[in-house]
């Protein structure tokens, strides 16, 4: 569908409301990402304060995952600026400096839709590896902290199991522990429950709910509308690479401004 034909799209640039007051921890401005001709992310700006939980909702292919991947530079934006904590980058199509990217990634942890656990390492090794290699922690310290993180996600008993011996829900919780063990300031969740049965997904959501309650700064792409509504501080609605609407969940869910948001919500909520 040609987005120029979508009336909603014409006023995307108007929606750059600073929703968070005071000092923002993450500041992304005018991010654009093209894949060939396709504008996967079309001028998105976002600012997140410490401790905030942001949910990205919207139809499949709207660019929620891509936006998350821009935030830790797994994909390089074609243009725009990004600051996470004290690490800032400007993108203009020239090759990016590795040290800058690294600085941003050190601040962020990512949880993948397909878990991406390392199949040849046990749960505790999955969680400990990057601590040793990146943070320079000793083997003992990394293991102790890994066990603590596994405990936190309720998997202390599975510490020595390999990913293939764990259920999908357990694997995803190991993935969360692996990201948390790096002491990130920002957690990115890329549809962490969409590969799981609803009941198993609930395990993951429970863990995430706790993280949110502990004051973890989080951005999550999700299809779990109820969860987004109750856990996040702010909700962004993405359609065709743009954030067409953003605001407090209550407002977005109960009184959406945009026709496209209403259509999307009525489709997924069945009302």
């Amino acid at each position: 569908m040609d987005k120029r034909m979508d009336p909603v799209h014409t006023d995307t640039r108007a929606i750059e409301v600073e929703h968070s007051s005071g000092h923002s921890f993450v500041q992304a401005e005018h991010l654009v990402k093209r894949f060939g001709e396709h504008r996967a992310i079309d001028d998105v700006s976002l600012s997140i304060a410490k401790g905030e939980v942001i949910s990205l909702i919207g139809p499949s292919g709207a660019g929620k995952s891509t936006l998350l991947r821009l935030l830790n530079v797994l994909e390089t934006p074609d243009s725009g600026t990004l600051r996470v904590g004290d690490a800032a980058m400007t993108f203009d199509g020239t090759p990016v400096k590795r040290a800058r990217v690294l600085a941003i990634r050190r601040h962020t942890g990512m949880v993948f839709q397909s878990f991406n656990l390392f199949p040849h390492l046990s749960a505790v090794q999955n969680v400990a590896l990057a601590q040793m290699r990146v943070l320079g922690r000793s083997k003992d310290e990394a293991r102790t902290r890994a066990l603590a993180q596994l405990e936190r996600v309720g998997l202390a008993a599975k510490a020595d199991a390999y990913p293939s011996q764990c259920s999908g829900g357990q694997q995803q919780r190991i993935g969360i522990a692996r990201a948390l063990a790096m002491d990130p300031d920002l957690m990115l969740f890329d549809e962490p429950t969409s590969g799981l049965d609803p009941e198993v997904g609930a395990e993951i959501l429970a863990v995430m709910r706790e993280l949110a309650a502990d004051g973890t700064t989080m951005v999550m792409a999700t299809h779990e509308m109820e969860f987004a509504r109750h856990v996040s501080h702010w909700t962004c609605v993405m359609v065709e690479g743009a954030v067409i609407e953003r605001g407090a969940p209550a407002q977005v869910f109960d009184a959406p401004e945009h026709e496209r948001t209403r259509r999307f919500l009525s489709a997924v909520l069945g009302r």
Binding site: G109, F115, N116, F118, L129, V134, A179
Partner: peptide, 18 residues
């Protein structure tokens, strides 16, 4: 080897050698 394995490594800031 699936792409996700590389991505998980990058997201964890693992070095090239590691």
């Amino acid at each position: 080897i699936r792409q996700g394995q590389y991505e998980a490594g990058w997201a964890l800031s693992l070095g090239r050698w590691s």
